[in-house]
Simulated scan of single mutants.
Amino acid sequence: MVKTYVFGHKSPDSDSITSSLVMANLEKELGNEHAQAYRLGNLNKETEFILNYLGIDAPELLESVEDGADVILVDHNSPAESVENLENANILKVVDHHKLALNTSYPLSLRFEPVGCTETILCKLYEENNVGISKEIATLMLSAIVSDTLLLKSPTTTEDDEMAVEKLAKIAEIDVEEYGLEMLKAGTDLSSFSIDEILALDAKQIDFKDVKSIVNQINTASIPDVLEMKDDLEKGMNKIIEDENLDLFMLLITDIVNSNSQVIALGKHADLVEKAYGVNLEDNMVLLEDVVSRKKQVVPIMTESA
């Protein structure tokens, strides 16, 4: 049996996990019966909420792939965010809404669109291939779009995302506002996580030109509650900076209710945050109002200022 591994990025979020499940299902519907969803890390609370709501088991953890393995990437394409030994795997397809970072010596199927969520693209792929969307699949898709766009309030939200949510909500028979807010709030519960786990929940290595950085984002309904852990968070951040020889660790504590982010910035290039946003860090912190999207409101601005 030639298995096809379907997976999203390391430190998986809801889009990464649900897209793996949805893409594997689409592959099976199209005749690839050996497609199977995997994950590259632990689930966050929000994703646990989604899977528990549906009574679905989490995908199996995948730490590496063997040479020549057939793989499909969803919600990422950067090797730095992917599985170990990806360079020796056979990438069949990529479905993603991030910038292109992949370089291969062979042709493959690529589907990239500048939308708020990978699931929006997958929704189109089901339609284009005349594959019906079940209530369960619709709920997975809808949940991820709500997550990535913060209930369609993020600047990453597109008309395509809105149309997908409208369609999927009808299939899933879900009140988007009620379900979405409950889901997002479930994702803000950090009580069972250690500091190390919090700092790895949604951490991405994003180098701003020559500034080697990690940008981590955690959602909350109360910034002050998270800041009660500030000293411990900073100790953990400084350890990661030292261990990984980083120039900057930027932690975004994003308020899903008021749509802004408290930033903690550490490292020898923490002043890049001040330069990029025209602000002053006080006690390593600054509140960035109306900033909720790492992809649109952090990465391009920080890169341009580096």
Score class of each variant (00 low, 15 high):
residue 1 M to L: 15
residue 2 V to T: 14
residue 2 V to D: 11
residue 5 Y to K: 07
residue 5 Y to G: 05
residue 7 F to Q: 07
residue 8 G to N: 07
residue 8 G to H: 07
residue 12 P to C: 07
residue 14 S to G: 02
residue 15 D to V: 04
residue 17 I to P: 00
residue 18 T to I: 05
residue 20 S to N: 02
residue 23 M to A: 10
residue 26 L to W: 01
residue 26 L to I: 13
residue 27 E to G: 05
residue 33 E to M: 11
residue 38 Y to A: 04
residue 39 R to L: 02
residue 42 N to T: 15
residue 45 K to I: 15
residue 47 T to M: 06
residue 48 E to A: 10
residue 53 Y to M: 12
residue 55 G to I: 12
residue 56 I to P: 00
residue 57 D to I: 01
residue 60 E to W: 08
residue 60 E to P: 04
residue 62 L to T: 05
residue 64 S to D: 13
residue 66 E to V: 12
residue 70 D to R: 14
residue 72 I to G: 07
residue 72 I to V: 13
residue 72 I to W: 06
residue 74 V to P: 07
residue 76 H to Y: 02
residue 78 S to F: 03
residue 78 S to G: 03
residue 81 E to D: 10
residue 81 E to P: 00
residue 81 E to A: 09
residue 82 S to Y: 04
residue 82 S to W: 01
residue 85 N to F: 00
residue 88 N to M: 06
residue 90 N to W: 10
residue 93 K to R: 15
residue 95 V to F: 13
residue 96 D to V: 13
residue 97 H to E: 07
residue 97 H to K: 11
residue 99 K to T: 15
residue 101 A to R: 15
residue 102 L to E: 04
residue 103 N to L: 14
residue 109 S to N: 13
residue 110 L to F: 08
residue 114 P to Q: 02
residue 115 V to K: 03
residue 116 G to V: 04
residue 116 G to H: 03
residue 119 E to A: 11
residue 119 E to P: 00
residue 119 E to C: 14
residue 121 I to G: 00
residue 128 E to G: 06
residue 129 N to R: 15
residue 131 V to T: 06
residue 134 S to V: 12
residue 137 I to Y: 03
residue 138 A to Q: 12
residue 138 A to S: 12
residue 140 L to N: 06
residue 142 L to T: 03
residue 143 S to L: 08
residue 146 V to M: 15
residue 146 V to T: 08
residue 152 L to C: 13
residue 154 S to D: 13
residue 155 P to C: 05
residue 160 D to S: 12
residue 164 A to P: 00
residue 165 V to A: 01
residue 166 E to P: 01
residue 167 K to V: 03
residue 169 A to R: 07
residue 170 K to G: 02
residue 173 E to F: 00
residue 175 D to Y: 02
residue 177 E to F: 14
residue 181 L to H: 03
residue 182 E to K: 05
residue 185 K to N: 03
residue 186 A to C: 09
residue 190 L to N: 11
residue 191 S to F: 12
residue 195 I to R: 00
residue 198 I to F: 04
residue 210 D to S: 14
residue 210 D to I: 15
residue 211 V to C: 09
residue 213 S to Q: 09
residue 214 I to Y: 06
residue 215 V to A: 06
residue 215 V to S: 02
residue 216 N to F: 02
residue 216 N to Q: 05
residue 220 T to V: 01
residue 235 K to W: 02
residue 235 K to F: 08
residue 236 G to S: 04
residue 238 N to F: 05
residue 240 I to D: 08
residue 241 I to R: 12
residue 241 I to W: 04
residue 242 E to C: 10
residue 245 N to D: 14
residue 245 N to T: 11
residue 246 L to F: 10
residue 247 D to G: 10
residue 249 F to Y: 13
residue 250 M to K: 02
residue 251 L to S: 06
residue 252 L to K: 12
residue 255 D to E: 04
residue 256 I to K: 11
residue 258 N to Y: 13
residue 259 S to Q: 13
residue 259 S to G: 01
residue 260 N to H: 10
residue 261 S to A: 14
residue 261 S to I: 09
residue 262 Q to A: 11
residue 269 H to T: 12
residue 271 D to A: 07
residue 278 G to I: 00
residue 280 N to T: 10
residue 282 E to L: 01
residue 284 N to H: 13
residue 285 M to E: 03
residue 286 V to K: 00
residue 286 V to Q: 01
residue 287 L to S: 10
residue 288 L to K: 05
residue 294 R to I: 09
residue 294 R to T: 08
residue 294 R to V: 09
residue 296 K to E: 11
residue 297 Q to T: 06
residue 297 Q to L: 09
residue 297 Q to F: 06
residue 299 V to T: 15
residue 302 M to D: 03
residue 302 M to E: 04
